[in-house]
Design a protein around this nucleic acid. Structure first.
Lengths: 239, 239
DNA sequence: GAGGATGCAAGAGCGGTGCTCTCGTTTCTG
DNA sequence: CAGAAACGAGAGCACCGCTCTTGCATCCTC
């Protein structure tokens, strides 16, 4: 399971063989990533990756046990990238409202530049392929960035009071309350944070998949509206 | 283009051959639909459909020009079904708040019972496959059901005032204002309706694709919360 | 340093896919 | 009734994921 993680890439290579193995593993990953960006996950073929590298397709199986494992490697890589995009777009010294908009746009910009990678992360999972459990903590980087901003706002000037419908506490997994900024949030706030994260991912997917064609005229402006509306729903003070 | 629409199924069959053609077209579609429900769109194979029907794979091409065209037929079928599910769940004589919740749950229930069909409609599009323009009006049935409820509420007791961020009017396609209940809504309301539709589809997709694992504890309760929150955002009067 | 164990690349092969072409046969139509 | 059109079946092409065998290079140990 996930053989590529434990040979060559993680441990420092000792022998020439291990060095060559790590090198080739990286090359395979790089070519696969390039092809993913061009033709998308369904079109990614282990054989064509092998062709690009001038090697027999069977040889690739020494590095990745299956096409799914290769896809998992790209999944991890992409999760880290979108996490970095979110964290990198955050300006901790700015006011929470601007940080919020910045992170939303950061994620959107990464998605626009990496459409197929985004689809791999947040799109329809390929039937028969279950993402390994390991990825959940990497996947949390992006939503945690959002949570941090709201937590900072709460600790700072406070959040505006919420007057909308209430969420049944049993709906939320108790572990989430702990995970998000170590209990800085109420159940109600946690529920709205989950919704906000869900909506950020959803609206970008809509834009990317063409579902907003003939619906919106200016996708960036509509996205900005969604970002502000979502931030306001959490108690951030826009306008 | 879309040959299956114009032979046999639409026009009334006149000769025995045309009748047989319409019959076989329906059988192909039915087995394809069954396989779609079992293995999902990526696993749907024209050859295996032919095998199930005891015919040569090449014969199927006389009825559907390509796998994509077969998928398009299933797409249209599914769009109509989810539209019917939404419309069928609406109780026009009930109060708008209950109608709203009912339609949301109607769509969710259809999605839970037809996961792969839902993924085909709202999931990641297969690269290289563009849904034909024809489907857009069929696709509008579900969001229009939502719009109708809000429009009725607006004409009735009115909507609660909205105090959140405003949407740049240029973000919305002007045609949408006309499409939605023939101009019953302001730009602001239209923007929130689009968001609500987007969020309904998004949260169901999240639940279906397992992204809510370890996040929510009771998916139905969380969905109910999302439905109420979204209705309230549009000015419906919950609680 | 020699020799056995291990890692590795390549090729052939299996069963699957979408799709095309040809070749008889059936069915409709003028 | 004869020509035209539609049809089913089969072979074939190029691709896919994946497995197995074969021969060679490298590494480790004695």
């Amino acid at each position: 399971m996930l053989s590529f993680l434990y040979t060559g890439l993680m441990n420092a290579p000792r022998t020439a063989r291990e060095r060559a193995r790590a090198e080739l593993t990286r090359e395979i990953l790089a070519t696969a990533r390039r092809q993913l960006g061009e033709v998308g996950a369904p079109g990614l073929s282990l054989r064509s990756v092998a062709r690009d590298l001038g090697m027999a397709s069977s040889a690739v199986y020494r590095y990745f046990a299956s096409r799914d494992e290769l896809l998992t490697a790209l999944l991890i890589e992409s999760y880290n990238e979108v996490g970095e995009a979110a964290e990198g777009a955050d300006r901790p010294k700015a006011v929470p409202e601007n940080r919020w908009i910045g992170v939303w746009n950061g994620v959107r910009n990464w998605a626009l530049a990496n459409r197929h990678e985004y689809a791999l992360l947040f799109g329809t999972p390929v039937p028969g392929y279950a993402a390994p459990h390991l990825t959940t903590e990497i996947a949390a980087r992006m939503p945690l960035t959002l949570a941090r901003i709201v937590a900072d706002a709460k600790r700072g000037n406070g959040l505006r009071p919420y007057t909308g419908p209430e969420c049944d506490p049993s709906a939320i997994d108790p572990a989430m309350l702990v995970l998000l900024e170590e209990g800085a949030f109420t159940v109600e706030e946690t529920a709205r944070l989950i919704l906000a994260w869900n909506r950020l991912v959803g609206i970008i997917g809509y834009e990317l998949h063409g579902h907003l064609n003939n619906v919106t005229a200016d996708d960036a402006a509509f996205f900005d509206y969604a970002a502000r509306a979502e931030g306001a729903n959490l108690g951030l003070a826009f306008d």
